[in-house]
Every structure is written in structure tokens, then in C-alpha cells.
Design a protein around this nucleic acid. Sequence first.
DNA 1: GCCGTTTTCGGCCCGACTGTTTTCAGTCG
Length: 566
Amino acid sequence: MTNKDVSAGLHRLTRLLQLTGADMHRVRAYQRAEGIVRGLAEDLNDIDPQSLDGIGASLAETIRELLQTGTTAQEQALLAEVPAGLLQVMEIPDVGPKHTRLMWEHLGVESVDDVEAAAKAGRIRDIPGLGARSEQKILANLERWRQHQSRTRRPDALALAEPLLAAVRAADGVVQASLAGSLRRGRDTIGDLDILAAAADSAAAMKAFTSHPSVEEVVLAGETKATVLLAGGVSADLRVVAPESWGAALQYFTGSQAHNIAVRGRAQRRGMTLNEYSLRRLDDDSVVASATEEEIYAALDLPWIPPELREGRGELERPLPRLLEVSDLRGDLHCHTLWSDGARSIAEMAAEAVALGHDYLAITDHSGSLNIANGLDEQRIAEQAKEIAAVREQFPDLLLLHGIEADILADGTVDLDPECTAALDLVIGSVHVHTNLPPDEMTERILAAVRSGRIHILGHPTGRLLGRRDPYEFDIDAVFAACHEHGVAVEINSQSQRLDLDDTLARRAVDAGLTIVINTDAHRLDELHTLHQGVMQARRAWLGPEPIANSVAGAPPLGRPPARRE
DNA sequence: GCCGTTTTCGGCCCGACTGTTTTCAGTCG
């Protein structure tokens, strides 16, 4: 079982405990554990769960049980009390454990389909404590939830949020506005968009938000808080606070929840309390700080913590690193051209790289077996070398590397003649086909490629496509160990649907002693500008320039030094 | 269930909004 399986198991236990009316603080302990596991860089199989802050003896045992069997005796016992289908029912927005239990007890509802049928038959309104409006809301939320279960990729979320933010910012009386929530923390996918504004009078900001052309439905609109649905079913929240509360509110709405709980616990231990309006002393209710995030953190003897690190991963206790910046990166080692499935010529890509200030760019078109992408065989690679030589003449200040993105075939073979790959400046090995191999075979396949000594970089290592395909199943720690042994770097691919490695795996790779390369995998000119997306992953992994190969100026230190032709 | 500058028991982050109530429970973030 993986960390993901364990956090899913803890989630089920949390929900079952809520349903069966367990003590709320006990429930919260499970909920916390779920979040801790979800954000964990290390593989739970390799560590003692009890060493984690927030995991005690009991939860550690639960985690061990989940790792071994995928479930727990406690879960089975709880499932004897309540139908398993109620776990799904609780995933419907605004339907929590209490209403779920009421529907079960009064109507015998045991599944989402049952809920839908009961709502359509008008039977939910008769439950004490619920009414016709609740019934309508449940039906609408159920429909919406079925249509939109997936999270939104960060770049797509930004594209939706920025016009809204601009409109709010331009509204009368708004002194400041910012993105908040997971968008501000730079997560690769986003559940809801959060926007925060500071204004003495909230009315204009609320109106600008709820009446924005991209809004399809206003879900709720109070004096200081509104929720709307945008095209595609993405929901967006606006909160408006007084300007003097800006810092407290921004800190609060940026989260994460785990970070906020930790910060508030720290405030409490220091005789203070923190809410979205201010940090106050408990004894005399006097305000200690509120206007800026820096003041809030400083009053708690903390440095300002970059939003990327606010995930409850020890950011209050550990010294903060100097984080990687886009400007640290000196080049890009993965892009495609007209020679395979790219949209631009080598010269055009080179010119754009020069415009970006890169020291180097590697042209890495697909290899022969990827027919769908017009992959290059040995013959065409030789022809491409001539064009690259010519383009080098045009751009004397750019180190233009001739590389390839070679396919790792199902048996682990790197899909070109060894003489051919040996003559190239750079070889990225990537898995593109036969992506459903059994875990053992997938592991052996990738290990074979890494051990071949023929690749410099393992491209988009897990193969995940956000919202479309889960990571390949394989033993990534074994692969990392082999990469370390054979001097193979691993990629953070900046494509918005990949972002692969993700933050936790990038951290794990560096902890395994690996070098990381952040690449765009650009197929077009504009995609050469997306290194910042990979940089965000690296920042969230607490990485600075040191383990990033392409933060080195002059020439990337990967295997054999690329020969600079004169 | 976890945890300790209030340390092995007794607390546990905090507030907005909605709906069904007529002072509050449920849900969310």
C-alpha cells in the first residue's frame, strides 16, 4: 500500500467515526493524520509513523494495519454499523455526517442514488431539521458534484482567477486584493479559487465579484463572503475584510488548514489567539498584530513563511531554506521541434531561448518508436545534427545541445542504437507506451533503462497526467536508488498536465541524493516560458538552487560534459 | 486520539453563512 492508500483509508475512518457520532476531537485527530500522510514526502513503508508529529501509538498502529491490509479491524467494525454507501453520500458538498445520518435513519437512504431518488420524491423535506430548501440544495449539489469531481490544474485555475481578481481590485474602496488558498500556495491542482480583498466597505467588491461575466451562478452572498460557480463548475470564494485586518486575513485564507492549526496552537501557547481579523492577547484582548503577514509571524517569533511552504510540514520548527527562483535557472534541457511533434523550428526555439536569457537549450525530439509523434530514427538524427550545427552558428552565445527524448520500451531497452545515443549531447529516457505494465515489470523496465548507462535524465518519471492518468505503478524508491548509483538525474517536467515529479517526490528524490532538472518539455515557443511551473514544484519541495542541475551557469553538469563546438 | 513553556489530564482553531429555527446546528474552509 502507498501513502495515498493510507490517507484514503484514514479518510474513510474519519468519515465513519463522524457518522457514528465519535468524539469530535478524536475525529479531528484522524483528520489531521489524513492530512499529515497526504503531504508526506517519505514513503510510510520506510519510516516509523509514530515519529510524525500528530501520530501517536494508536494511529501509528492503524497506519501499519492499513499499509499491510488496506483496511483495519476498526473500519470493518464500523461498516457493520452503517452502510458503506453513506461514505459517498458525505462527499456531496454541504452534506455532512449529521444530515447523512438523518437521511439514513428517516428514509433508509444508503447511497448517493438513494439520496437523489429521495430528493426527487420530495421526501427529504419531511425530515426534522431539514426542509424544502435543503432538499433543493442537496439535489443541486449532488448534480454539480457528479459533473465536477476533478480538481482544476493550477494554470487553468489562474486563468479563471486573474480576471476575477482584477475586477475585485478595481472595485470602489478596495485597497488591496490577492489570491489566497491553495492557488497562492502553488499547489499543482486546486479545489476552489480563493480571493481576498481589503476594503472599508465591502459592497462594491462583492458586487464586482458576483456580477462578473464569468460567473454562472451565485451560490451564496453575505456581507463579507460570497461563493460563485464559474464555467466548468469551478467554484470561487471572495472574502472582504477591513484594511487593518489585511495581514491576519491573508494569513488565514492562505492556509493550509494544517498550517493554520499549527500557527494558532503556537499563538495559544503564547497567550494569544489568532483569527482572520487579528492576533490578540487572551488576557486583555489587545491587538498584537493584524495589518501584515510579516507582523503576525514576527509576533509569534517566526519569519515570514512563503505560502509554498505552508503545508504543515514542519515549517514552524525547521529553518527555512533559500528557495529556488526562476532566475536561478540557466537553461532548459527538454524541448521539441518540427523534427518530431513540435510546432517550431530549431532556430525559432533557439531564438526564444536566447530571448529568455538562457545559457543553454537542449533540442530533444522524440525517438523512432514513437511514430505518433514522428519520432526520429538514427538516420534522421544524423540529419538533424547538421541543422543544429548550422543554428549554432546563428546563436554563438547559446549552448545548443543536440539531445533526444528516447523511448524506454516495454522491456527497458532505450530505443536507439547505442552508438547513436553515445554521440548525442544529452539523452532523456521516458516512458510513453505500455503504461499499464504490472508494477514489478514497470519497475524492472525503468531500472533497466537507468542501469544501461545510456540516459542522463529520467523524463517525467511517474507519467501522471493530471485529471487523466494516475502515476505509473512502480517502486520509485528502487528507481531513485538506481539513479543515484548511475548518476541519472530526474526531471521536474513543467507541463501543466504533468508537473512530474510532484513536490513530495521531488523532495524524496533529493533526499535520495539525486540531481533534479527542471524542464519545459516545450512543443511551442510560449511553452518555453513555463519553467516557473516546475520551479513552484521545487519550492514546495523546500528546494534551493543546489540540487537543480540547470541552475548551474555555463553548461549543465550532467554525465559527460557537452562538447562545445567551435 | 494527541499532546505538554497550563506536561500524564484536560484541553483541543475559529468564524461566516444558511436553513430551520426563534437562539442554534450543520457545514465549510
